[in-house]
Structures are given as structure tokens and as C-alpha cells.
């Protein structure tokens, strides 16, 4: 029902984000940009760009839908060093407060300041303005340890049916 549909929607929208232009032919293959999207069981996502070494952290569509109207977002300071699993902020909806945990380790490079005035951006499905922060990864191999879109979808479905 409800649950499964949202997960599929989430998986589809993320797949679209991950298509980006590939490098020009004369660039060495080592510098080709590969963008990978991975998920956590905490319903966060990371879009990792190998070229920049930066991961963009968001919450999944499934999460935003479950939280309902987001009214306040608390984010870490730029320059903060975070370890995978550290609490880096919080999302408040009318319903509840939820902590955000760092899905990867690194240094916070940028935060989405637009969320200060427009926390509801997190509820806009398919809106690329709804990211939380960008982290320069200190250990890019952590990305491979996170859930693929299919694994995350399966995780949501198992939660939905339990």
C-alpha cells in the first residue's frame, strides 16, 4: 500500500539525479565523474560525486512523507568534522523531532541555508532544493557500505510489512 508506493517513488527520483554528463574524451578515465546514490536504514541518502569527492546528504522521500510538514531544520556548522553515525542535526515536523546522523565521515563543506526560511522544501517531492548539507568525504569507501536503491527499497518494504 502507501509504503511501497512511496519507496518506489523515492527510488525513481533518485535514479534521475544520478544521471550526469560524463567527462570529455581527452580526460583521463581516473578523473571521470561517477555519481553514486546510496541510502541508510535511517532514511538518509548520499549522492556522492567521485570527481569532487563531495557527498550531498538528504532525507529520502519516504522519510519526508512519514514526517509530514517539516517546520524547522537544524544543520551542522560548515567546517565541522563528522564521523559516520554522528548526530549532525535535526528535523522538526508538527508530529515529531528526528535526529539526522552523518551517513559518511568527512568535513561539512556547505549547508542548505535556504532551509532556514523554507524548511518545507524537504517535503517537495522531486525538488532538488531539498538537500541538507554537503560533506567532503574523508573515507569514500564508506559509500560502498551503504544501501543501494534496491536494498533501501527492500528495507522500506520490510518496515512497512512488519
Amino acid at each position: 500500500m502507501f509504503t511501497g508506493r512511496l519507496c518506489r517513488a523515492a527510488a525513481l527520483s533518485r535514479a534521475r539525479i544520478s544521471s550526469r554528463p560524463v567527462a570529455l574524451p581527452f580526460v583521463r578515465s581516473a578523473y571521470r565523474s561517477i555519481v553514486t546514490t546510496r541510502y541508510t536504514t535511517d532514511h538518509e541518502s548520499v549522492v556522492f560525486d567521485t570527481e569532487t569527492g563531495v557527498g550531498t546528504i538528504s532525507i529520502t522521500d519516504y522519510a519526508q512523507s512519514s514526517l509530514g510538514d517539516v517546520v524547522f531544520v537544524e544543520l551542522p556548522n560548515v567546517g565541522t568534522t563528522v564521523n559516520q553515525g554522528d548526530q549532525i542535526g535535526a528535523i522538526e515536523s508538527v508530529k515529531a523531532a528526528s535526529d539526522i546522523y552523518a551517513p559518511v565521515s568527512g568535513i561539512v563543506e556547505e549547508i542548505n541555508k535556504e532551509l532556514d526560511d523554507k524548511p518545507g522544501l524537504l517535503n517537495k517531492v522531486d525538488d532538488e532544493k531539498g538537500w541538507l548539507c554537503k560533506v567532503k568525504l574523508s573515507n569514500p569507501s564508506e559509500v560502498e557500505g551503504l544501501l543501494t536503491a534496491d536494498a533501501y527499497k527492500a528495507h522500506c518494504e520490510s518496515e512497512g510489512s512488519s
Binding site: D42, I59, S66, L67, A96, S98, D99
Partner: peptide, 15 residues
């Protein structure tokens, strides 16, 4: 405290 992991909030609003 009532502050919870996102996963807990998501899960708890479901169950």
C-alpha cells in the same frame, strides 16, 4: 527524551 532517530520516527509513525 523524545528526540529520536529519523528511522525511529519514520518507523514509529508507521507502526
Amino acid at each position: 527524551m523524545i528526540q529520536t532517530k529519523l528511522a525511529t520516527t519514520v518507523a514509529s509513525s508507521r507502526v
